[in-house]
């Protein structure tokens, strides 16, 4: 069953086959989680929101065009859920604009010395803060390309815009990030 095409899996899900839907969820769970993380910057909330969006997708599964890419449909639901969550949380004690260090991961080995570790933490926080200061559409495209490694074609489908627009938006986003980081890394950039 895992070898079935996405179209067939969506059709089976539309007939109430939860096992088929489970295969779709397992295929997209990582992308779903990282997409949510890009919006809310909090591990547990990203897990929760991405799972909740799958539940909402299941509830609306009959409306999905089986011939279209599942993730594009799912992403719209997820994005709305995340935006609603951000609006809710912005009135509470800890806004998402604050850096949650749990969101970031060290990709180097654990053998690094303490000084380098501190420098790396500072770098990560600075980059993350700069990303948070970007406009929402700039941050979104940057997260999709830079941290989730979606191809230009995939981003074009997810954001429902031509590939040329993806390229120019990505250019603007990176340029904006570069300008934000110039103040922090004047000797580096």
């Amino acid at each position: 069953m895992t070898l079935l095409t996405e179209t067939e899996l969506i059709r089976r899900s539309q007939k109430g086959d939860k096992h088929a839907f489970g295969i779709i969820v397992n295929r997209y769970k990582k992308r779903a989680y990282f997409s949510a993380l890009g919006f809310v910057h909090h591990h547990e909330r990203a897990m929760d929101l991405s799972q909740e969006a799958f539940v909402k997708t299941w509830q609306a599964i009959k409306k999905i065009d089986a011939s279209r890419n599942f993730f594009t449909w799912y992403y719209t639901i997820l994005k709305n859920s995340c935006i609603n969550e951000i609006r809710k949380i912005s009135t509470s004690a800890k806004p998402y604009s604050q850096v949650d260090t749990n969101t970031l991961e060290d990709i180097e080995d654990y053998g690094m010395d303490t000084l380098r570790s501190i420098e790396k933490d500072e770098l990560k926080q600075t980059v993350w803060q700069a990303i948070n200061q970007l406009k929402e559409n700039e941050r979104e495209i940057l997260m999709l390309r830079e941290f989730q490694n979606f191809s230009y074609a995939e981003i074009s489908e997810i954001l429902n815009c031509p590939q040329g627009t993806v390229m120019s938006r990505l250019y603007s986003a990176r340029k904006a990030l570069k300008e934000k980081l110039t103040t922090y890394f004047s000797d580096e950039i």
Binding site: N26, L104, E105, V127, E146, L181
Partner: peptide, 20 residues
């Protein structure tokens, strides 16, 4: 080079296993 040094938090295998 700078952004490549920043990666997002990857959940544990157990968390992925429990996802569905």
């Amino acid at each position: 080079e700078v952004t490549d040094k920043v990666q997002l938090y990857e959940p544990t295998q157990e968390e992925w296993d429990m996802y569905w």
